[in-house]
């Protein structure tokens, strides 16, 4: 594992911690999309099925379990916590997730490495992760004002993806015969999804202003 990959994973972990702390400390999930959080739970469950049949490293196993547990903890807060669930913008968070899930699943059936249940589900999780942030970005666009923590959460999620891109470039030049097209193409799409957000985030940061999205 190279430094870019580790930095990417740590940024991913930090983004989740920031979101959990925001929810716990402010007892509010205003501006957070439950649809996106549920999509991430689907992504982790379908991708980490290999926890049951293969062992890669202790690091790998522990991180997978952390991602699964934190995803369900966030969902629990947003759905079940007495105070937090009342702050959820249900009326604004209306993205039709089936428009993401169905095409990703069909694509996973058509383009994969192996026609087995676990491999198709793993491929599905790669495709779905690429677009899972969309309900969150749409919610942000609707509510316009972005609070600092939600902004930082999304910025870190985007940074994690950018670091993974660098990790792949590094691996390409250091590992003989290393290539993984499905992951590369999806990962590039996923990183591009954040470009617009990055632009406004950096602009707000440079002007020392609160982040706002155009209407």
């Amino acid at each position: 594992m190279n430094i870019f990959r580790l930095a990417g994973d740590m940024t991913h972990l930090l983004s989740i911690i920031v979101l959990l702390l925001k929810i716990q400390a402010t007892k509010s999930c205003a501006g957070v999309s439950l649809k996106t959080q549920e999509l991430y739970a689907v992504v982790f469950v379908t991708r980490y099925l290999d926890l049951f049949y293969s062992f890669i490293s202790l690091y790998n196993t522990v991180m997978k379990i952390i991602f699964l547990l934190t995803a369900f903890t966030i969902i629990w807060y947003m759905r079940k916590h007495k105070v937090v669930c009342q702050t959820y913008d249900k009326e604004q968070d209306t993205f039709r997730v089936l428009f993401l899930i169905v095409p990703c699943f069909v694509l996973a059936l058509l383009v994969n490495h192996e026609m087995s249940v676990t491999e198709v589900l793993w491929t599905f999780s790669i495709y779905l992760e690429a677009v899972a942030i969309l309900p969150q970005l749409v919610l942000l666009q609707r509510t316009k004002n972005v609070d600092n923590l939600t902004g930082n959460y999304i910025f870190m999620l985007g940074s994690y993806r950018a670091l993974y891109l660098v990790n792949w470039v590094y691996r390409y030049f250091t590992e003989l015969g290393y290539r993984q097209w499905i992951v590369w193409v999806s990962g590039t799409v996923q990183t591009c999804v954040y470009l617009d957000f990055f632009y406004y985030y950096v602009q707000a940061w440079r002007n020392n202003e609160r982040m706002k999205l155009p209407g």
């Binding site: 290999d50 293969s54 490293s57 490495h113 491999e119 793993w122 993974y164 992951v183």
Partner: peptide, 10 residues
């Protein structure tokens, strides 16, 4: 081995 490589990433 390719598949194993891919599954190593989170």
């Amino acid at each position: 081995e390719e598949a194993e490589d891919e599954h190593d990433e989170l």
